[in-house]
């Protein structure tokens, strides 16, 4: 049984048909990536799984349970967490308060331990714990967004363009972090524009084009595929 399974989902914004008949799955322990150009429907797909958007038809299963109509606010308790596109940390809450919000559904006696965990993983955040989220640099904000999503110990972590807007050295750090989380057993669904980096960490990948999956395969296979190379990796 797959951890997450999307079965022919269709998502609309009014009349705009943004995601068309999409089916894919993520197995326990995998890193799966969705890649595609701007406007391919990657964020729409993630937001639909996270319950922020709703599909007009199709079904989403998490651990075999139908979560298609479960509202976003209830999914964390089921083990789903997302770092949304643009991070969306709370700029006017302190770093520590942001993390506390990430643990909103966690047993209150457990929260301190989780905070320590987060600070061990991201020591920079500990130094800045009292600072407002809005005063952090872009890279620190991305770390905060990831730490915040990890506070609930999610069974599936969804990341929407974690490398967006970051300097190359920080992109590398973020991907090291993703590998690290994966090694510790976190299942990850990763959306990226940076196809090269995403395919190198992913076990499997799906390629989206205007709302449809056009190719899928192992990360390695797609990295080596000539069509993918020319379309997404800017290479020959």
């Amino acid at each position: 049984m797959s951890l997450l399974k999307a079965e022919s989902i269709h998502v609309y914004y009014g009349n705009i048909h943004a995601v068309k008949d999409l089916s894919f799955h993520v197995d326990e322990g995998e890193i799966v990536t969705l890649i595609g150009a701007n406007g391919a429907g990657k964020s729409t797909t993630l937001n639909t799984i996270a319950g922020l958007l709703h599909c007009r038809s199709g079904q989403i299963l998490f651990r075999g349970e139908d979560i298609t109509h479960v509202p976003a606010g209830k999914l964390v308790r089921k083990g789903l967490a997302m770092v949304p596109e643009g991070r969306r940390i709370f700029l006017q809450l302190s770093v520590e308060e942001n993390l506390q919000m990430g643990a909103y559904c966690v047993d209150r006696r457990e929260v301190e331990t989780r905070l320590e965990e987060a600070y061990a993983l991201f020591p920079r955040l500990k130094e800045r714990r009292r600072q407002d989220g809005g005063t952090l640099s872009g890279g620190e904000q991305q770390m905060l967004a990831m730490a915040r999503a990890l506070m609930s110990h999610p069974g599936l972590l969804m990341l929407d363009e974690p490398s967006m807007g970051l300097a190359p050295i920080l992109v590398e750090q973020i991907f090291d972090m993703i590998r690290d989380l994966h090694q510790k057993g976190t299942t990850i669904l990763l959306v990226e524009q940076n196809a090269q980096a995403a395919l190198s960490v992913a076990d499997r990948a799906y390629v989206l084009e205007t709302g449809r999956i056009v190719t899928d395969g192992s990360g390695q296979a797609l990295l080596e595929s000539p069509e993918i190379r020319s379309a997404y990796l800017g290479g020959e």
Binding site: A50, G51, L52, P71, A72, G73, K74, L75, V76, R77, A81, M82, P84, R88, I89, F90, L91, Q92, L93, E97, Q100, M101, G102, Y104, C105, R148, S152
Partner: peptide, 18 residues
């Protein structure tokens, strides 16, 4: 704190389970 989070970004607050 949840109120402040909702005030700033409802969608992100929902994602936290608020």
């Amino acid at each position: 704190k949840a109120m402040r989070a909702v005030s700033e970004d409802r969608g992100a607050a929902e994602l936290m389970g608020i």
